[in-house]
Design a protein around this nucleic acid. Sequence first.
DNA 1: CGGAACCTTTGACTAAAGTCAAAGAAATAT
DNA 2: ATATTTCTTTGACTTTAGTCAAAGGTTCCG
Lengths: 309, 309
Amino acid sequence: MEQEHSEPVPAEQVAALRRFNRYFTRRIGALDDHYLGQDRPLGEARLLFEIESGDAESGDGVSLRELRSRLGLDAGYLSRMAKTLEAQGVVRVSVDPDDNRLRRVALTAAGRVEIKEQNRRANALAAGLLDTLSEPQRTELTRAMATAQRLLRLAAITVALVDGAAQDARACLDAYAADIGARFPEGFDKSDLVRPREVTGDAGAFFVAYEEGRPMACGALRTLEPGVGEIRHVWVHPDARRLGLARRILAELERAAVAHGFDVVRLDTHAVLTEAQAMYRACGYTEIPAYVDHVYADHWFEKRLAGAR
Amino acid sequence: MEQEHSEPVPAEQVAALRRFNRYFTRRIGALDDHYLGQDRPLGEARLLFEIESGDAESGDGVSLRELRSRLGLDAGYLSRMAKTLEAQGVVRVSVDPDDNRLRRVALTAAGRVEIKEQNRRANALAAGLLDTLSEPQRTELTRAMATAQRLLRLAAITVALVDGAAQDARACLDAYAADIGARFPEGFDKSDLVRPREVTGDAGAFFVAYEEGRPMACGALRTLEPGVGEIRHVWVHPDARRLGLARRILAELERAAVAHGFDVVRLDTHAVLTEAQAMYRACGYTEIPAYVDHVYADHWFEKRLAGAR
DNA sequence: CGGAACCTTTGACTAAAGTCAAAGAAATAT
DNA sequence: ATATTTCTTTGACTTTAGTCAAAGGTTCCG
């Protein structure tokens, strides 16, 4: 688990968040949800929307199972709603070809028309709201919302210490390997990934960042030699980049390193990962000569840890 | 009614607003509403909250009538909910002393305790969210939310041409007079306000800005001499200042002046209203010699209108 | 192969949220 | 003073949203 930081949140900032939350949900948020549902109960509208976005992602339909977990609905309730939507002709329910227990739900043409119309209305509503503002004001608003959203996302992400053999850990490492493999001219061999044992217990640490339950970033710490830790596999999901998440993972790893009694941490990185190098420098890492001969490494960094005894 | 501006809203800005709206209402807004209701159905929780805020405003309770219009509830539904809350001991319902048809609802001590506890939880939740951010990030978030809120408020305000004798117009002018009277060392005499006839039809115009149905700002245009209009009584409610509303009223008045065939508009202002003077200058007004001998005027401005024939 | 785990459907409920209309009491308009 | 309007209450609904458990197919695992 994450260590708690000592500085308390100023009451004024808490009040500002609540004030904004109240204003936004009462005034603006209502725009979408209320008027948008039109003739459809909210539950059905939400379901339809979720089917649409799942459908768009994966091509041919979403399974009831996935909808259930995404919307947190009761199986019976969902089953009935799906049936209602099918009776109305907006979705088609079929048996999953790969697993006959599952049902896949996909939009029909009529369903797509309805979604499109809903989107048209929502856009018109939003445009109507923005219309009274001048262009510079709209630009300012857009920028402010983007900033707020970025920071709120970051705030909602939690970083957890997990076992190096845990499924989420391996999933992150697989994604990391695939990602890196595509960027390195020489590819990447999975056998170079840390072994679960290296990053567990006294030997090291493995952190995974979760956004709404999904693993979105990771980072590993292992023992290089007595008193020296090595940071490896700092990776952030493409959808969660530019939030400042890598820095948080790094900070977590450094805290863990201090807790493990390391005085110094080292890491290596590849020439093509220029953003990563910039980040390490900005976080207090200094370039050092090669401490190990890795196939994939061109640059080596080190940081002396302040908190170490 | 407001003239529509010609420039259309860029699709990217509409998408940004909708993206933010979706993210915020699903993720953050849920924080408050869901968990906050605790043991209470949402409808009751909302009602209790509305009673609290109405109570805090006006001292001794809110009428059912007002609650009904604020929350948009059915009379029967509201009556029953109020009764439920009374049975639970969190509110007290009494007959309005001034109008025996009305019922006033006020929180009991137990009700106040519950609200307080709810606030405590909501604050803890918000603080927990902000806690993961660093201080500079929190400051940035707070600033971004304040900007977004200011602009969204401004966007939600509509400016309408109203009859100078309309109730909202007179209410604004009364507030204006009281406001000005308190700021001018010599006070202010209501007989100096424009007459309804001066600002109606061909003679002039009167605009009122509405936020959620409440009049929040006004401005008048009258005929000074043929081809010359005079702008008077530009006023913004204290709760709506620093939004840029005065500029919008001014722009509306100028548009009306062009439509009335005025080539130029003039206005006078008092020495103590320094912000107003700065605004007029920033909006293209230039200082001129006195064009009329008003008791309350120290500075006179004029603007030649571009759109005039 | 047999049992455990999984996914969905169905039946039988409940609580919340809301609608509609009739009726009574009080205030306002004529 | 009488009619009309306003505000609330009450009874009699309906729809939405959701829960729980039993049961019937499928797939997975040993």
